[in-house]
């Protein structure tokens, strides 16, 4: 490390900051979001109408929640590939319990517990079995979606429930309830990550597991905890998903997996672990939703949307190389 001068560069002039690639890398998602909003608004004035903003925020809710879960895992240098199929399993568990006539509360509990258990399983295998996260969660990705198909016998369960309908359609002004829930999750996650001992230990585990162990931190417990958080949040996402589509489907939801990882990368969280934020991935999720929404408004064929998402994510990943 040749960098010995570390006086206090934080108060540099704005012009100097704007020339610094690191600054742009740090705020890639926000800059990208602003650029997208300006471009789409210029091309189609309905983009920033209250109705469209409201629908974008609601559409972003599930992705925000999953991205928060994914952030916790990625900050420990892991990855949860099973997050979307865990959500599917949660949705199916919801549907099964609901169709047995056990009521909404128990159905929600079933979704959280089923997804949470997958998370615990991921965590225990990764931490105690010392197997690469990638392989473990690839396995549970397949296992959870298989289990969802078995439990539901491949059939969707239609759910008609006034409370759930209210959850997906009502809200505070332009903020739909599902977005409000996502925002609360994000705030709690931020507090957990930056204002508790657990959060510091999590970042230490991701940044330098050996050092964390030498300081007496149980990296195994941290790993189990982050996968459990990821699973529980997938369960919460499952409830919102059921509310949104009015049915519990054993569908694959692959796009949610890819987009959750994409949002985390866009949000400037290092895939090598140890550094990250919650606000970054939240903005990343909003950016992805805005991108798809804007392209749809402009009448661009749906086929182009995955291409656009892919390009944006790779560009963001390139930018993060310049992070300090």
């Amino acid at each position: 490390m040749a960098n010995t001068a570390i006086a206090a560069p934080e108060h540099g002039a704005w012009t100097a900051r704007l020339k610094d690639v690191g600054f742009w890398a740090e705020w890639a998602a926000l800059v990208g979001l602003i650029v997208l909003v300006i471009v789409f608004q210029a091309l189609n004035p309905t983009f920033l109408s209250a109705g469209n903003i409201a629908s974008m925020l609601v559409a972003a809710a599930i992705l925000i929640i999953l991205s928060v879960g994914q952030t916790f895992v990625i900050a420990t240098a892991g990855i949860d590939l099973s997050i979307a199929s865990t959500m599917t399993l949660g949705a199916v568990a919801f549907g099964q319990v609901y169709s047995m006539g056990m009521g909404l509360a128990l159905s929600c509990l079933a979704a959280i517990v089923a997804s949470g258990l997958v998370g615990v399983l991921n965590g225990v295998i990764v931490a105690r079995g010392k197997i690469t996260d990638f392989i473990v969660t690839l396995g549970t990705l397949s296992a959870a979606s298989g289990l969802a198909l078995i439990l539901s016998d491949g059939k969707p369960v239609t759910i008609i429930d006034a409370t759930l309908l209210g959850l997906s359609t009502g809200g505070l002004g332009i903020f739909g309830w599902s977005f409000v829930i996502a925002a609360v999750v994000a705030v709690l996650a931020h507090v957990l990550l930056f204002h508790t001992r657990f959060g510091t230990h999590l970042l230490a585990t991701g940044g330098a597991a050996e050092s964390a162990t030498a300081m007496g931190i149980s990296t195994q417990r941290v790993k189990i905890a982050v996968y459990t958080i990821s699973g529980v949040l997938a369960g919460l996402g499952a409830i919102l998903l059921v509310a949104r589509i009015g049915a519990a489907e054993p569908a694959a939801n692959t796009a949610f997996l890819l987009n959750s990882v994409a949002a985390v990368v866009l949000g400037g969280v290092s895939l090598f672990g140890g550094r990250g934020s919650i606000i970054g991935p939240v903005i990343g999720a909003l950016l992805l939703i805005a991108l798809v929404n804007g392209l749809t408004l402009l009448g661009v064929s749906q086929f182009y949307q995955p291409l656009a998402v892919g390009i944006v994510v790779v560009l963001a990943a390139l930018l993060t190389r310049f992070q300090r």
Binding site: R197, G199, T200, A208, S211, M215, I217, G274, R275
Partner: peptide
């Protein structure tokens, strides 16, 4: 045994963090 991505003060207090809190909820 330092964590490069954490700050100096975070490293100094790693696993010895000072917390303020009430009951089971404690904030750094």
């Amino acid at each position: 045994a330092l964590v490069e991505d954490l700050t100096v003060w975070q490293n100094l207090f790693l696993n010895r963090e000072l917390v303020r809190g009430f009951g089971p909820i404690a904030f750094l």
